[in-house]
Simulated assay, not measured.
Amino acid sequence: MSYIVSHATKWYYDYMLLTYQFKLNPTLEQVIILETWGELLRRHWNYAPGERLDWLRRTRSQIDRCSLVSEPIGEIPNKVDYYTQASDLKLTKELFPGYKNIYADCQQQNLMRLDKAWKRWLLPDKFGNRGGKPRFKKRGDISSFTFLRVNSPKAGAHLTGSTLKLSKIG
């Protein structure tokens, strides 16, 4: 099995998006790490839209017309969006130590992808079209993750010659 790592670069002055893809030849230990990251990111993905759908279900009806059968009565939760879920990443790492091994930018990019899909579903574009509801992922559905920065001081990926070093993977 081969692995592909992609890195996107945005050029704002001429609106061009360049993407570099690198084919990886990981060792057996690195394959285990990559598959573990994919599974943990899938679980986090599935939790995040569940949290958003719960918020949506609880806040859709007016308070004097709330269904006693299908909706729980209680405190109305705060709005759930990318920023609240990204701030909860610290708590996630405390509760589930496996997430400490994943590079933080990969987790944030996972949430950003979900946020884009969520906004496409809720908000129509300029033609009035909307996307479908973000789906929950099955095992193996998340097969990629993104390192935003390469060769910068806080980068998770460093490219020197033909060697790509990924943070927490090697």
Rank of each mutant, 00 (worst) to 15 (best):
Ser2Gly: 14
Ser2Glu: 09
Ile4Phe: 13
Ala8Trp: 00
Thr9Gly: 02
Trp11Gly: 02
Trp11Cys: 11
Leu17Asn: 08
Leu18Asn: 07
Thr19Gly: 05
Lys23Leu: 04
Leu24Ala: 07
Leu24Tyr: 00
Asn25His: 12
Thr27Gly: 10
Glu29Arg: 08
Gln30Phe: 00
Gln30Thr: 05
Gln30Asp: 03
Val31Asn: 13
Ile32Ala: 14
Ile32Lys: 15
Ile33Gln: 12
Glu35Gly: 07
Thr36Trp: 07
Glu39Asn: 09
Glu39Cys: 08
His44Leu: 15
Trp45Ile: 09
Asn46Asp: 11
Gly50Ser: 14
Leu53Ser: 09
Leu53Asn: 12
Ser61Lys: 07
Ile63Lys: 15
Ile63His: 08
Ile63Pro: 05
Ile63Ser: 15
Arg65Trp: 06
Arg65Gln: 10
Ser67Ala: 11
Ser67Cys: 12
Leu68Lys: 12
Leu68Trp: 08
Val69Cys: 07
Ser70Thr: 13
Gly74Asp: 08
Gly74Gln: 10
Ile76Lys: 15
Ile76Ala: 10
Pro77Ser: 04
Asn78Ser: 11
Lys79Arg: 15
Lys79Cys: 13
Lys79Ile: 05
Tyr83Phe: 08
Thr84Asp: 03
Thr84Ala: 07
Ala86Met: 01
Ala86Asp: 02
Ser87Pro: 01
Leu89Met: 13
Thr92Leu: 14
Leu95Arg: 15
Leu95Val: 09
Leu95Met: 12
Tyr99Pro: 05
Lys100Arg: 14
Asn101Arg: 10
Ala104Met: 06
Cys106Phe: 00
Gln108Met: 02
Gln109Thr: 09
Asn110Tyr: 02
Met112Tyr: 03
Met112Glu: 10
Leu114Trp: 06
Asp115Arg: 02
Asp115Leu: 01
Lys116Cys: 09
Lys119His: 12
Arg120Gly: 09
Trp121Cys: 11
Leu123Thr: 14
Pro124Leu: 01
Asp125Pro: 00
Asp125His: 00
Lys126Pro: 01
Lys126Asp: 06
Lys126Glu: 09
Phe127Gly: 00
Pro134Leu: 06
Arg135Met: 05
Arg135Asn: 11
Lys137Cys: 11
Gly140His: 12
Asp141Val: 03
Ser143Leu: 03
Ser143Trp: 06
Phe145Met: 13
Phe147Cys: 07
Leu148Ile: 01
Val150His: 04
Val150Gln: 14
Asn151Trp: 01
Lys154Cys: 06
Lys154Arg: 14
Lys154Ser: 11
Ala155Cys: 07
Gly156Met: 02
Gly156His: 02
Ala157Phe: 04
Ala157Ile: 01
Thr160Gly: 00
Thr160Asn: 11
Gly161Glu: 02
Ser162Trp: 07
Leu164Met: 10
Leu164Arg: 03
Leu164Ser: 08
Ser167Phe: 00
Ser167Met: 07
Ser167His: 12
Ser167Glu: 05
Ser167Lys: 12
Lys168Val: 03
